[in-house]
């Protein structure tokens, strides 16, 4: 049974008047299921943060609706069960990291013992008594994540959590999210980094210019694997390949052939080619990276003036 943690319907945010304004989010309908890490992927300015803000009730949609945990977004009962870090951590600069979390724990109505656990979790326990304003960008970001984790929420929304982190910090943050997923936590993660999403997300929503272009699993998005074959002579290899994969199922790429067949058919392909006295130099499975898919999807839109 797939329980929907987040569901938006035709969610739209228009800034300014209809003719002259800017459509930041355009009829986005997306779903996040319980227990998954959902990657919300798009370039900077695509409308990710605006969509997340509407989900959290920080801003009002111009049209459409968002429901979180089965209730309208922004209701106190809902936000109490959601932990969020939206567009940079917002804390009191004069308070220590620990006191900042204590203030937020009081707002949540939960005990201060969760503060220590949260600080431990993001590796800030030993810097907890330093003022927030003295933190590096990465530490501020981690404190924001710590705040989102407090109170074991049903949904954790992290907006670009690796922003401002150094490579080691990024790796730690990803490990933390993977761990959260392993614990069955539902995470909605926005990112403009493809490898990040590819690495840790189960499902992905791709957004660009306010439009949700696609929503599917990472595997579906990357499409079926194809088989890369380098064989000579090329023309005869092509003829045989087309017999195996169909006329439309083979593409020539330089001195390679790309066959749209599953990886399990590799031995069969080799056998057929060798039986026809063709020299097979190389065979490999080829998977499109999310990056290729992403640019395929977004490039025509980006070319528009």
């Amino acid at each position: 049974m797939d329980e929907l943690v987040v569901e938006t319907r035709e969610l739209t945010k228009q800034y300014g008047r209809a003719e002259t304004g800017r459509l930041a989010v355009d009829r986005v309908s997306m779903t996040v299921r319980r227990g998954e890490v959902y990657g919300f992927l798009g370039p900077n300015g695509a409308g990710k943060t605006t969509t997340l803000r509407m989900m959290l009730g920080l801003i009002r949609p111009t049209a459409g609706s968002a429901s979180v945990l089965g209730r309208p977004a922004g209701e106190p009962e809902v936000t109490a069960r959601v932990g969020a870090l939206i567009e940079g951590p917002g804390f009191y600069p004069y308070l220590t990291g620990r006191d900042n979390l204590r203030v937020m724990a009081r707002y949540r109505g939960i005990g201060r013992e969760v503060v220590e656990a949260a600080l431990e979790r993001v590796d800030l326990a030993d810097r907890g008594d330093d003022r927030f304003k003295s933190y590096s960008l990465g530490m501020k970001q981690r404190l924001g994540v710590a705040s989102a984790l407090m109170g074991d929420p049903d949904l954790i929304v992290l907006d670009e959590p690796t922003n401002g982190l150094d490579p080691a910090g990024m790796a730690d943050m990803r490990a933390l999210i993977v761990q959260l997923a392993h614990d069955g936590q539902t995470v909605l993660l926005s990112s403009h980094l493809l490898d990040e999403v590819q690495e840790i997300c189960h499902r992905v929503g791709v957004i660009n210019n306010g439009l949700l272009l696609r929503e599917s699993t990472v595997a579906e998005l990357r499409g079926a694997t194809s088989l890369l074959v380098r064989a000579t002579p090329l023309d005869r290899a092509l003829a045989i390949s087309m017999r195996l994969a169909g006329d439309e199922g083979v593409r020539v790429q330089g001195d390679h052939l790309l066959l749209d067949v599953p990886a399990e058919r590799a031995p069969e392909v080799v056998r057929e080619l060798v039986a026809e006295h063709i020299d097979v130099h190389e065979i490999a499975t080829s998977e499109r990276s999310l990056e290729e898919v992403f640019f395929e999807m977004t490039t025509p839109v980006l070319e528009a003036p």
Binding site: L56, G57, L58, P76, T79, A80, V82, A84, I86, E87, G88, P89, G90, F91, Y92, P93, M104, Y107, R108, G109, G144, S147
Partner: peptide
């Protein structure tokens, strides 16, 4: 001050309604 620091944004996502905060 909380608008510039972003702390109201954080507070408004903690649970209590805007009225309550």
């Amino acid at each position: 001050s909380g608008y510039g620091w972003g702390s109201w944004k954080t507070v408004f996502t903690q649970g209590p309604s805007r009225t309550s905060t």
